[in-house]
Every structure is written in structure tokens, then in C-alpha cells.
Amino acid sequence: MTDYNFAYLDEQTKRMIRRAILKGMAIPGYQVPFASREMPMPYGWGTGGVQVSAAVLTPEDCFKVIDQGADDTTNAVSIRRFFEKTAGVAVTERTAEASVIQTRHRIPEEALREDQIIVYQVPIPEPLRFLEPRETETRKMHSLEEYGLMHVKLYEDIAQHGNIATAYAYPVKVEGRYVMDPSPIPKFDNPKLEMDAIQLFGAGREQRIYALPPHTKVVSLDFEDHPFDPSKADHPCAICGAEDSYLDEVITDDAGGRMFVCSDTDYCRGRVEAAAGAKAEDAA
């Protein structure tokens, strides 16, 4: 398609986003303000992630989009087609083949490599926002490293529920300095935030970009007597039998029937195909 500039955004916008990404890379976990543009999709559909992807994509890239782990949901399909059209990049559903992965609320089960970039869609980038609504105050709290309020919140969870009840968007501390919202990924994914790939976070409505370089120290907040627990449903996947993957609970009828399946559709399919291949080999 030649009616649009490569990857949709104009060059000056991309330069502005690229400068923000580099500053974010230099200050891991710090939210860099940027002049977010209106995108041809509603806020909440990944406008931040799309702008970051547009700024990093090259013509040689292979692009994958997941929404809650799935490649085939409306949000994932429309964003994937958007860049297929406007950037002419190759697309894939396979994690291993992708060089840039845009994600809504999951990290793929397969470990990401050095040559991959993962772009998160972020709704509320400020981890302190629900505790302190004023941006002027949360800015100050970050600058003073004043994170007591967050620990009070986690403590109140324990006092009320007996454990830390936060199950997603579980706050982390980056390199011992900034408390960061890892976007609404399940806390099951938190240990994967220390990875080999470059991680970029884009919040379009809130106009913030932040980043994690590879091998950055990312610690989930907890207490000595209530250590962080990346829990998951206590079932194997009903399709591929995986016991190490994050599971979605699917209601199957009106009588309380339910099944647990991998949320990462590519991981699940890969395991099913590998099992079928092994079976065919045994038969032959």
C-alpha cells in the first residue's frame, strides 16, 4: 500500500516516539511522556502499543500480535492486518518466527530470544494511580522513591484476605529504583519479565512509554513472610496437557461444566503438533 507512509505514522512522529523509547531504555521502568497521536482505533485497543510498534518496525521484520495469548481474537487480527497493510511486513502466529511481538496482557510461554522485541499495550501505566489520582503527586513519589503507599496496599490485601490478592498488573521494582506496572499481565508472567529480549511498553491514552532492556533486574514486590507467588490454575491444559502454561477457564455448558486450556494459542498448537508428529513417527 503506497497511500500511507511506511508503518502509517509520519516521520516526525516516529522520531518523537523513537527518542522517547531511547530515553526509556536509558532509565528502565521510568515513564517517559510522549505526544501520543490519534490512531485509527479506539483508546483501549492498543493505541500505545501500535505507535511503539510503528516506530520500531523495519521492512524486514516478522510481526506477531497476541491478545490474552491468542493470535485469533479481533484485537490481534486487526492490529496484525493494520501493519501488514501499512508496513508491508511479514506476519506470523508462531512466537519463534516473530522478530517483533505486540501483546495485550500476556507474555508468550516460549522464552524470547535476544533478537526479538516485545511491545506491551498498557491501559494505565502508573502503578500508583489507584492509590493517588494526581499525576503531580505520583511524579513526586517516583522522584523521591516514595513507594510506602504501595506496600501499605499490599499489606492491606494480606490483612483483609490473608494473602496478596493482586492477580494481574502486579507491581514490580526495576533495578532497585522505579516501581513499574508491567501492564495487566497475570502475575504468573511476572518472573518472565527478566528476559533476553527488549521490552517496550506503550500507553496511548495516558501518553507514556517505558522500557526494560534485556537482563534488567525486575522484582515483584512482596514481604519476607508473604513471598511473591506466581500462581496458576491447578490443572493441566485440556487440549495439550501442558502443566507449566497459564490457563484460561472456559465455561462449556449451563450446568457448571468447564475446561482449562492454554491461554497461549501458539504454544498449545505447537505442543499438539509435536505430539501428533511423535505419534506418527512411532507408528511408522
Binding site: F6, E11, K14, R15, M25, P59, I198, P213, P214
Partner: peptide
């Protein structure tokens, strides 16, 4: 657009690592 995209990826790579 294309050359700047490739160049930025090089900038990102060296800044990230």
C-alpha cells in the same frame, strides 16, 4: 522511512545492550 527505521533499530540495539 525505511532507512530511518533500520537505523533506529541499530540505535535501539546498542542503547539496550
Amino acid at each position: 522511512p525505511r532507512e530511518a527505521a533500520r537505523a533506529f533499530r541499530a540505535c535501539l540495539d546498542v542503547m539496550a545492550r
